[in-house]
Design a protein around this nucleic acid. Structure first.
Lengths: 186, 186
DNA sequence: ACAGTCTCTGACCGATCGGTCAGTTACCGT
DNA sequence: ACGGTAACTGACCGATCGGTCAGAGACTGT
């Protein structure tokens, strides 16, 4: 792996665990076995490092939301969406954990604003398509709960579980959570 | 409200939104209309402020876990536990949001270590009482999802919903999530 | 009037923050 | 052998961090 990608991976992990504000360039440099100056050689600023760390995940989430626009969550496409979303979470759980928990309070950072805009899009769509308070909570628990359980998976009590089994179980649970939710036509 | 309690409430909110590391004493002082020196007059240190902010929530969680020890989650007591837990989340959602997301990375802070120990207790109990991967995930999604949905409730798309309705819906959803989970006898 | 205590403040401290810059090293094609 | 460039570094900068300290006001009981 290149030094550039190395730094991106280290930064992503530290940002997710210790927070963006709680992670210094000095620490990232030490974990990479470099000097702080070298980190700033590969990335123009700490903010650029943040952008490189979570940008790809936001791009992919954007694509997922775009591909289902207009036909979201009617029964035929619901399972496909859930599977896409679970796969997204499995691949980008650190990034999701980051901008779920640090999205507010990291404003004025372009890439974070873009992520927040996506969340707002998703959330206002649910607001217009879903009627009851309970249905709102079902969406929130499904999305937030799945993201949470994956963010603590690796260092928590759960060891290295087979990813296929985790994926299948997540699809089952999320599908079950959203089963009672009926979506109004657009 | 006293200045002391005022500062505690402001600090809790900022710690939850911007993170412990991302919140300066200067900012807390400004929000309270005081100088930084005054904040340090009421609390010996930033860490003491953190302790005061989340300590009461940890005490209560400790009490809840203690009261159900040994008889946890058999069918008769399961609903009572869920209702207690939901009430706890409704009252202390900022604190829960804090030490769920910043628990790791805030080690060596006594009050955080105590909270982490509680989470480990809860989680290892589930590990010994629950068998399948799916059941583990059900617990995680229920707890983490409920905590998440409440942490974004106030400034998210959900406005001021009637708390009774939210409580009832949460109890319904969490009960449903945990319904398929069978617990081994101790 | 006086001493004591509670609340609050600005000035100041060493440490660390993100970031700049000049310079060194190593490897490249010619 | 030589110039160019990519990778890297230490020294340094202003700003901000958490925290200390001496003292200013305000309000008490005596």
């Amino acid at each position: 792996m290149s030094t550039h990608d190395d730094l991106r991976a280290i930064a992503l992990n530290e940002f997710a665990v210790a927070g963006y504000a709680g992670t210094s360039l000095q620490r990232i440099a030490e974990l990479a076995g470099l000097s702080k100056s070298s980190v700033l050689y590969h990335f123009d600023s700490k903010e650029a490092l943040l952008e490189a760390a979570i940008g790809p995940a936001i791009d992919r989430m954007d694509a997922i939301l775009g591909s289902i626009e207009g036909s979201l969550l009617v029964d035929e496409t619901r399972r496909a969406f859930i599977e896409q979303f679970v796969d997204f979470l499995l691949e980008h759980r650190l990034e999701v954990h980051m901008f779920i928990n640090q999205g507010p309070g990291l404003e004025d950072v372009p890439v974070i604003d873009r992520a927040n805009a996506l969340v707002v899009t998703l959330s206002t769509f649910f607001s217009s398509a879903v009627s009851t308070v309970e249905d709102h909570l079902r969406f929130g628990i499904a999305l937030g709960g799945a993201a949470y359980v994956l963010s603590v998976k690796q260092d928590g009590s759960l060891g290295e579980l087979p990813v296929d089994e985790v994926r299948a179980a997540l699809v089952t649970i999320v599908s079950e959570l959203l089963a009672p939710v009926s979506v109004r036509s657009l």
